[in-house]
Design a protein around this nucleic acid. Structure first.
Lengths: 355, 355
DNA sequence: AAAATTAATTAAAACCTTTTAAAATAATTC
DNA sequence: GAATTATTTTAAAAGGTTTTAATTAATTTT
């Protein structure tokens, strides 16, 4: 097969610099088949306008020459790269990794690819991606970046969709635009569930760790419902990762009056908190219950295994991808698809008191 | 700014279906500036052939119209998409997530993007990606997939590079081709280090968990050096993830004669093993030492924190990306770059006996 | 002031496909 | 056998950029 290719090159292009491989084009096939370029294109695209025998002949030659259509040329004429952009803060974060995986899996099943656009929480990076998207390098994009700094881009993103590049938001809010569908989980309720559960266990003084208005509000509403009040010192409202969680754990361990339980914005933070508490000889859950949100795989393998609130991130990713591809293919969305919210679920494990 | 665009559309294209946004092109700018298309292109690319004032005028108009070059057209003529493919088994795996992150970070700094190609260990998926690469959708690719099944693609991948699509292997072997640089870590030595350390602690009966010829051999060579022999039942040679590690842990816990220490192919497996041991009331490290390889972030936050052998995955990713972009830009590689190997380092934490 | 040189601009080709409208060929009908 | 219809093939345009070679305009030299 490869010999043919080499021979072919020799025949048609004579002088060829060593190492300069020239890809086979429709034209080459046409010449070889003694037929026009248009016929070849039609034939390879299985048009029923072209004669059966010609089609076969052309396909044979294409095979023999190891032809593969030039994606760049095709993208130009089709106005589509069959590629979407996925904007997330970082891949090194089990939650977003799983989101990326599920999105990739779905779009791949529809013959699309995904460009990995991680911002590392830098707003300028997101900006650069938005500009890239405008250039038509993708057919659409999913934005899954949270954070206040990103809010300033909402206008630009609206512009993007008005320029006909569909966008779907995942767990990102701040925009209420008819052309931007939002897929999210009920994190308000998740935080509520977490706090509510801890209170039902008998805990009276709860702490919260992480930076998220929605989750903090859910947390507060549970306290409110049970007539508990929230001391300022029990709110560690800060941008945290696992290391940050560790710091919070250290701070808590150092207090004389410790909270009885802590609700963390996500599982990573929870693990950080627990690790610090254990290191400081504070027993989890005997002395302090710790609960996360997300239910990442590690939550089940941590020691103690982590009580958490499940967020169906894979389902969310798939749904977002479905909606995006629907929009890309020009379909209209049902009202439900424009704002799709997933329920969350409490998962009781070993990092909280047993009732 | 946006008003201008709309106005412009109205002027030049009169009838425009609602919602059908037409992107601004070089031609539009040329007309508006009363100058030829070529001049516009030259001007926007900052050619010194075009007059200072004209250049300024053109740039102003481009700005006003919110012009952004069409990436698809540019890709066609430049024969480059400024995009690379990254083939990994899965993103939901801290090791590959970190690899992806570092690769993305570097190529992004050079204005390249990365298409996420995760195969879920399916050989057909890798095949599909290889075909996509052939179509010119990427300028080059990094293959970081291990596994015997993938070996069958080596020929195809060689073909790929012979078609002038540069490829770099990361931690993947089986090919010795002058055009395929390999970046790897010394995992043979890593396994050796792990076993050697455990033996130095006084352990006599060691087990191994995971499927990797190279690592198992390193493990064996350490035993050999110390004159220890390896019982078959102590080798859990299987394709394992975290769950698989858990199963191994259960099996070990159920044995009457337990090994004194276990070397795991990677940290995920190690965590699975530990979690099972603890669940079965086998104390780690008091009764059994467990050691991993990789040094993922979680290793430091696990409880007990995980003794492991560090693999500088971020450095590896960066190096691989550097080499790939070098090849893409046509530079030749030094012999060292054609086979770059990173040293590994023992990281002692709490999952192994203290000396 | 004509010739030669330099600077600025442009026409046109190239990149490779898809797709439409027109042309050529084959098959059918009267 | 001419006219019509159906089938098959093709020429050509379109997509939007880059880039080279050629043209035009401006400047300098003789």
């Amino acid at each position: 097969m490869y010999e043919n290719l080499l021979l072919y090159k020799y025949v048609n292009l004579n002088v060829l610099k060593e190492g300069d491989y020239m890809a086979v084009t429709l034209n080459d096939i046409a010449r070889k088949a003694g037929v026009s370029l248009a016929t070849v294109s039609l034939a390879l695209n299985n048009s029923d306008k072209v004669n059966k025998d010609t089609k076969l002949k052309i396909k044979r030659i294409a095979d023999k020459l190891n032809y593969v259509p030039n994606a760049r040329a095709r993208a130009l004429v089709k106005k589509s790269t069959k590629t979407i952009g996925l904007v997330i803060p970082e891949v090194v974060n089990p939650f977003f990794a799983e989101l990326a995986q599920s999105i990739k899996d779905y779009v791949r099943s529809q013959d699309f690819n995904v460009i990995l656009c991680s911002t590392d929480y830098q707003s300028e990076e997101e900006l650069r991606y938005i500009n890239m998207f405008r250039s038509g390098q993708v057919d659409g994009a999913i934005f899954a970046c949270v954070g206040d700094m990103m809010a300033q881009h909402n206008e630009l993103i609206i512009k993007l969709v008005e320029e006909n590049i569909p966008v779907v938001y995942v767990d990102r809010d701040g925009v209420d635009h008819d052309l931007i569908p939002v897929v999210k989980s009920d994190v308000y309720h998740a935080a509520y569930q977490a706090a509510d559960y801890l209170i039902s266990l008998g805990h009276k003084e709860l702490a919260f760790a992480g930076q998220s208005v929605e989750r903090l509000n859910g947390f507060k509403s549970a306290l409110m419902k049970h007539g508990l009040d929230l001391k300022d010192k029990n709110v560690y409202y800060d941008y945290l990762k696992m290391e940050g969680g560790y710091t919070v754990g250290e701070k808590i361990a150092a207090r004389k009056n410790k909270p009885e339980a802590v609700v963390c914005l996500n599982d990573e933070i929870a693990i950080g908190v627990i690790q610090a508490l254990i290191a400081e000889k504070v027993k989890v859950p005997e002395e302090i219950s710790v609960i996360g949100i997300d239910n990442i795989k590690m939550a089940n393998f941590y020691n103690p295994s982590l009580t958490t609130v499940n967020i169906p991130v894979s389902q969310m990713g798939k749904k977002a991808a479905e909606i995006l591809l629907k929009r890309i293919s020009g379909q209209t969305l049902s009202p439900k698809e424009k704002f799709f919210i997933f329920p969350t679920e409490l998962v009781i494990r070993d990092s909280s008191w047993k009732a």
